[in-house]
Design a binder for these strands. Structure first.
Length: 583
DNA sequence: GCCGTTTTCGGCCCGACTGTTTTCAGTCG
């Protein structure tokens, strides 16, 4: 696809490099070349500067995994929208082969066989050929493979994308509870991206420690939520449950539990780095343990029972799962300089919640009691302003009634404290949806965008940073406006927001709503680096959604956040005192 | 195609499961 040469972002370039990797593999070139392009793509996604800047300053080679060839491709992509290498590959690889790769179970070899014989280039044609049993007439493909391809296509159509964190968590918890009840398993853990609090989840990984795998496997594939069994082996099985979500289960002996947990928690990139480090010490790291090379066959492991043992044997501190992305955590662990990450138990209160007075479900009294029961010292209720027609935003009269209600509840719940705040809409023209005299009555003012998402990057940036410069605005909420798997982030200059946050003392929210998780983790890290203050919020619209603070905290940990930059990890007085100066 | 506490050349993480195999290739995570 041709790129708009004027508007290419880092992610778009990274996508092309990934595609170049796929094309190289399809063409049958050295696979390590493909691996290199994909590694470079990943480095670019982690980059905290625009590629356009690096190109202009001739600094592309500073990026890890970017050498002469990849740098040339990037420079051409940034300046012209395509590259010589990319164009050559596109010409050499029949269009459509890439499409076939999207079908699980179909890799480069199978795609090539199918294309060479049947000239199939779309999923629809592939499905038709499978239905007509034309695939099983091809070499290396028989009835079983054809059947699996059909099933994969059906799953592909049913599947809308990756699962949101809370959905995957619910499915995992249900399976864990079922397995605990049905079998006498000793230990079971959720591993994978769910344990790492990734913002969306591809599939769920479960690790079980037990010397008797067979009955656990049997129970797993027979679970009531299972819709389809993908694989069933002695120690490893995969199933699909509702909404196309895949769950993998691995059973290992209790002595290998730590190594297995480490292995299945990932990320893949983190594991690859660890194994490389092990190899340089003539050690082999796999899911069963850490061995001297050659000793693994005799089962003489150096470490395997706990994750701590394995990390320690590699001379590093235990690394929290949220950091395991090969983004510097391994070096930090070797040098004993990993941060102490923020936990939900550090959070003293929630500063972004809604009630049934606008678009929430539950009354203030229930929200407050639940927050108090969670151990919070305070809760800000931040119902909407009137500009959002559908949410029944609060009029001045209803704000007064809310203040009275809160005062009464505060007397009852003391020392717990309800703060009356607002989530005030930032209108398309940048004006706030309440006049200053009303804003001044609130304890907390969080400003956010809910309309005119299609504005230009410049307009949107000015709109939000303008609100941040308003003296009565405490925080800015969900600054990118993204809805995971649903709506892309709007165009906005997050660097400018971080700069405005640092200059004005306005807080930036980390929203725990599972479809927002906004600010994204890489920008959290950047905001912290620049000295911005963050606030972790649930954006709860019902009492049980107050638990979404867990997702905000997990996302903040992925951004390497300790308690220091978090406003609501402070007690009530310290939190209020750290708001920017109000007139 | 990249990279160096083993290296400027020769590696590049490792193993389970499936299907079509009679010893292994392909795919996945």
């Amino acid at each position: 696809m041709p790129l708009d040469a004027l508007a290419v972002g880092n992610d778009a370039i990274a996508d092309v490099l990934d595609e170049i990797g796929d094309l190289i593999e399809l063409k049958g070139e050295n696979v390590f070349r493909a691996v290199t392009y994909r590694a470079a793509a990943r480095s670019i996604r982690d980059l905290r500067e625009p590629l356009t800047k690096l190109v202009a300053e001739k600094r592309l080679r500073e990026i890890p995994r970017v050498g002469p060839a990849v740098a040339e491709a990037i420079e051409q992509l940034v300046t012209t929208g395509t590259s010589k290498r990319y164009a050559e590959l596109q010409a050499a690889v029949p269009p459509g082969l890439l499409t076939l790769l999207r079908v699980p179970g179909v890799g480069p070899a199978t795609a090539r066989i199918i294309y060479d014989n049947l000239k199939i280039t779309t999923i629809e044609e592939l499905e038709e050929a499978a239905r007509d049993h034309r695939l099983q007439q091809l070499p290396k493909i028989q009835a079983k493979t054809e059947e699996n391809i059909l099933r994969s296509i059906a799953a592909l159509k049913q599947r809308t994308g990756r699962s949101l964190l809370h959905e995957a968590r619910a499915a995992a918890d249900e399976m864990v509870a079922y397995l605990r009840e049905r079998t006498g398993l000793e230990r079971i853990a959720i591993a994978g991206s769910l344990r790492r609090y990734r913002e969306t989840i591809g599939d769920v990984d479960l690790v079980v420690a037990s010397d008797a795998a067979a009955p656990i496997m049997a129970a797993f594939v027979a679970a009531p939520t299972v819709e389809r069994i993908l694989a069933q082996g002695d120690t490893k099985s995969s199933v699909v449950v509702g909404r196309g979500l895949q769950i993998d289960l691995r059973v290992v002996s209790p002595s290998a539990y730590g190594a297995a947990l480490l292995y299945f928690t990932g990320s893949k990139e983190h594991n690859v780095r660890l194994r490389g480090i092990a190899l340089r010490r003539k050690l082999l790291l796999n899911e069963y343990g850490l061995y001297r090379v050659g000793a693994e066959a005799r089962g003489q492991e150096i470490a395997s029972a706990t994750e701590e043992d394995v990390y320690a044997a590699l001379e590093m501190d235990w690394i929290p799962p949220e950091l395991r992305e090969d983004r510097g955590e391994i070096d930090a662990a070797r040098e004993h300089r990993l941060p102490t990450l923020v936990r939900v138990s550090d959070i003293r209160g929630d500063l972004h919640t809604h009630t049934n007075w606008t678009d929430g479900r539950d009354p203030l009294v229930d929200m407050a009691r639940r927050a108090k029961a969670k151990g919070y010292a305070y809760l800000a209720v931040t119902d909407h302003s009137p500009g959002l027609g559908m949410t029944n935003g609060l009029s001045p009269e209803r704000i007064a009634a809310r203040m009275t209600e809160a005062a009464k509840l505060n007397a009852e719940l003391a020392p717990f404290r309800i703060l009356v705040g607002t989530e005030v809409d930032i209108r398309a023209n940048g004006k706030l949806d309440y006049p200053d005299e009303i804003l001044a009555r609130f304890d907390i003012v969080s400003a956010s965008v809910h309309s005119s998402f299609a504005q230009t990057r410049e307009q949107m940036t000015a709109r939000v940073t303008g609100a941040m410069r308003h003296p009565l605005v405490t925080a800015v909420s969900h600054p990118t406006g993204r809805l995971l798997e649903k709506r892309e982030p709007h165009a906005i200059d997050l660097d400018a927001l971080i700069a405005a946050a640092t200059q004005t003392g306005t807080w930036i929210e980390v929203n725990g709503g599972p479809e927002r998780l906004d600010l994204p983790d890489t920008w959290i890290r950047k905001a912290i680096d620049h000295g911005a203050t963050l606030v972790l919020n649930s954006d709860a619209h019902a009492i049980e959604e107050l638990e979404w603070m867990d997702l905000a905290a997990g996302t903040a940990r992925r951004g390497w956040a300790s308690v220091t930059p978090i406003a609501n990890a402070r007690g009530l007085d310290a939190m209020l005192a750290s708001r920017k100066k109000r007139p």
